[in-house]
Simulated scan of single mutants.
Amino acid sequence: MRERTAPRRGGGSLPVVLIGAGKVAHAAHLRAIRDLPHTVRLAALVESDPERVAAVAAAGFPEVPVCGTPAEAVRAGARAALVCTPWWTHRDVVLDCLDQGLPVLCEKPVSLDPAEIDELLAAEEKAGVPVAAGYMKRHDPVVQRFVTHCRAELPAARRIVVDIHDPNAPHQVAHLMPYAPAPFGPQPPPAEEALRRALGESAGPARREAYARGLGGSLIHQVNIVHAILEGSGRALYGRLLHADRWADGAGVGVRWRPDPELVVDATHLRVPAHRRYRETLEFTAASSVATLTLPSPYARDESATLHIDTWDEAAALGARGTWTAEPGHTGFGGQLVAWARSLTEDAAPPLPGLAEVRRDTLAVREAALRLA
C-alpha cells in the first residue's frame, strides 16, 4: 500500500480530482462543486478530450491542473477522486485511484460484474480507503424521509412499486451541456465486452441491452433504495425473483421479487423518447398507510422530489395526509458531495453507500437480466 494520501480530519474543503468530464460531470457534479466552495474544491482534472477540458475551464475552473493519471493528480494536490468515466472503465480507474491511496466516489453503476466488484472490495481493503457509490438519490432529504417511513412500517408492508418513464434522450441534458450530448445509440464495443463478461457468452444482445440500460443503468438506483428499506430485516431481493420481462422491443423492462410471503416488489423502466420529462414514482403500501414518492429527472433544477404519506385509523374512520417536498435546485448530487466530504474529514460522519451495497444491488439486477422472458 502506498503512503496514505487521504484528506486529514478537520482539514477544510476536500481537494478532489474529477476523472472524466462527460455528461454527468457537466450536468450535475461541476455545478454542485461550484455551489459548495467551502466543502469541495476541484484540485485536478483527468480528461484527455481537449473539448471537454476547455469546457471545464469555461465552466468556472480555468486554473485547474489537467493531469493524465491519478498519480499526477495526487502530485497536484488531490486527496480524493470523483470518478465520472463511462461505467465499463470504472474497474480500472478505481483500481488506479486506490493504488494511490485516494478515496473514491464513483458514479453508478460502479460495475455490472460481481467478479469486478469482488476485486474492488479486495483492493479497497488493501488500500485502507473507501469506495463510495454514486447513489445520489439516497442524499435527497425527501427520499431519506421516505426510507425512514418505510423502515418503520416494514413489518406491515405488503408491496413496493417502482415505475419509471425515462426519455433517455439528449434533450434531457442538452440545456446543461457546453457541447452537444451524444445521441442515444448502441453500446460501444468495450461496453459490449464488459457485458459479455458480466452475463456470460450465452446471454444474447437483448439481455445485454436490458442489463446495460433499464436494469443496471437505471433501476439499480431504485433497487438500492428498496435494499435500504429492507436493511436489517432479513429480507432481500437476490434469490427471491419471481419473474423478469421485456416488452416494446426492449424499451420496457419489468421485474417482480417476493422477499417474503407478505411482500412483493415490482419495478419497471420504460424508455419513452418522445416524453419531455422524466418521471419516477415509488409507492410503499402497508396495512394502514401508503407512501408515494415522486422524483423528477436527476438533472432537473426546476423540480424536486415530493412525498405524500396517507394514513388512516380504521376504528375512527379517519384518514390523514402528510406532504413533504424540497425547494427546486436542492438535488441529491449536492447532498452527496457534502456527505462524501464529511465522511472523509469528520470522525463522526456516517459512511456513504459502498461496495458491499453495490454488490448486493448488482446481484439482484443481474439475476433479473439472466431470467428475462
Rank of each mutant, 00 (worst) to 15 (best):
A6F: 02
Q187S: 13
L293Q: 02
H139Y: 03
H171G: 11
R41H: 07
V253T: 14
D347C: 05
T39H: 02
G22N: 13
R277S: 13
K137A: 03
R359M: 11
G128V: 11
L18H: 01
R197S: 12
L293D: 01
A28Y: 02
E153A: 15
H227G: 12
D310W: 10
G204M: 14
T292A: 09
H269K: 12
F284W: 09
R4A: 12
A206I: 08
L82Y: 07
A156M: 06
D249I: 10
G335T: 01
E280T: 10
W247I: 08
R31I: 01
A203C: 11
R159W: 03
D92P: 03
I229D: 00
M177W: 05
F61A: 11
D249F: 07
A123R: 14
E192F: 05
P350F: 05
S343V: 02
S289L: 05
S202G: 11
A156E: 09
Q144P: 01
D313N: 13
G200P: 10
L82N: 02
A78V: 05
P167M: 13
E346S: 03
Q144N: 01
L293W: 02
E3I: 07
S343I: 01
D302T: 15
A132Q: 00
G254L: 07
A348S: 13
E51M: 08
E327P: 14
L337R: 02
G217P: 08
A81P: 02
A71Y: 04
Q172I: 09
A286H: 04
L18R: 03
L263K: 14
A341N: 00
V83N: 08
R256Q: 12
L176E: 06
R197H: 09
H221E: 06
A341K: 00
A236M: 06
V142I: 13
P181H: 14
Y238W: 07
R235N: 04
A58W: 00
Y211W: 11
A57D: 02
R301D: 07
A73G: 09
P298R: 13
R366P: 03
D302E: 15
R158M: 12
E153V: 04
R52T: 02
K108G: 01
E72G: 08
Y238K: 05
P62W: 12
A368D: 08
G77W: 04
A274I: 12
A244F: 07
H149Y: 11
P109N: 13
L219D: 01
A317L: 15
V94S: 04
Q172E: 15
G332M: 14
